[in-house]
């Protein structure tokens, strides 16, 4: 029972990371119909930006700032201007395939120009453990969960309460009407890409000390976050949050009480079940389109 608490905390921490990445999926989909299959690599890359900055002698805090700025510029602005805008004119499918190509390109670039080997990465949250209810809970899990939840709360507040956030929501819900009302839709979409870049950079800083920095480390994360977004509801930010947390918990509990070998399959079973019985996701909104 005491160890169950450990599992739940660990699952919540992992789930919170999945949620951060999954929110990016839903934001990009809502504002620009972009399904970014390179999202996992977007989580992998900021850690290498930070490592590169550390290698030139910057202190950790400065390297983190450099990593965040590089993520915003390359994974936010450049991604939108160079890949999404030109490809989206040709439809959602060509863009999805382009992001798959981008995923391969990013992985191979890191392998080629940095290293194929895993790298250690400093933790931004304290290590050690906290005695709680008679068991030791890792501080890192608590820290990761708290920071990820804080980021989600700030984002939700920004979207719900600020003028820019409401304009972003309007642009996502109906861009034509938003334009008529004078909302700069293109700028709002760019902000969404920047938010996605910031979220994946934060996820990268939180998860890499545990998973290690490696060119392949985004593969699992990207898939898990994609599943989380579908399970929760692809058209709702809160769906991504619910999906991420559910998936993190299910993954950890299944690995302990069902089988480690089948841990990779269980989220997929969950995905199939949701698609069959609740295709809009656990908290998603049903959408109808005429063909």
């Amino acid at each position: 029972m005491l160890n169950l608490l450990n599992l739940v905390v660990s699952g919540l921490a992992t789930g919170a990371i999945y949620a951060l990445v999954a929110i990016g999926f839903t934001l990009l989909w809502q504002t620009s119909q972009t399904i970014n299959f390179a999202q996992g690599e977007f989580v992998m890359l900021p850690a290498f930006f930070v490592l590169a900055a550390l290698n030139v002698g910057l202190p950790f805090w400065a390297a983190v700032v450099v990593g965040m700025i590089a993520a915003l510029v390359l994974l936010g602005v450049t991604f939108k201007l160079v890949l999404v805008d030109p490809m989206l004119r040709h439809g959602v499918l060509p863009l999805a395939i382009a992001t798959m190509a981008l995923s391969i390109f990013l992985k191979d670039s890191v392998k080629e120009f940095y290293s194929a080997e895993a790298q250690a990465f400093p933790s931004i949250v304290p290590e050690g453990s906290l005695a709680l209810f008679g068991t030791q809970i890792p501080l890192q899990s608590i820290g990761v969960f708290v920071l990820a939840v804080a980021a989600v709360v700030v984002l939700q507040q920004f979207l719900a309460r600020s003028s820019t956030g409401r304009q972003m929501q309007a642009a996502a819900q109906n861009p034509t009407v938003a334009r008529i009302l004078g909302i700069p839709v293109e700028r709002m979409i760019l902000y969404t890409f920047l938010i996605n870049a910031a979220l994946v950079a934060l996820a990268s800083l939180l998860i890499t000390p545990i998973y290690l920095a490696k060119f392949t480390s985004g593969e699992t994360l990207g898939l898990a976050a994609f599943i989380a977004a579908i399970v929760g509801g692809f058209n709702q930010v809160r769906g991504a949050i619910v999906g991420g947390v559910v998936l993190g918990l299910v993954d950890n509990l299944a690995a302990t009480y069902v089988s480690t070998q089948y841990r990779g399959a269980i989220p997929l079973f969950l995905l199939i079940a949701v698609i069959l019985w609740r295709p809009q996701g656990l908290v998603g909104r049903a959408e109808e389109r005429t063909v």
Partner: peptide, 9 residues
């Protein structure tokens, strides 16, 4: 990547 479940076991 994740050994939390193994540690609990």
């Amino acid at each position: 990547a994740d050994f939390a479940a193994d540690a609990v076991k």
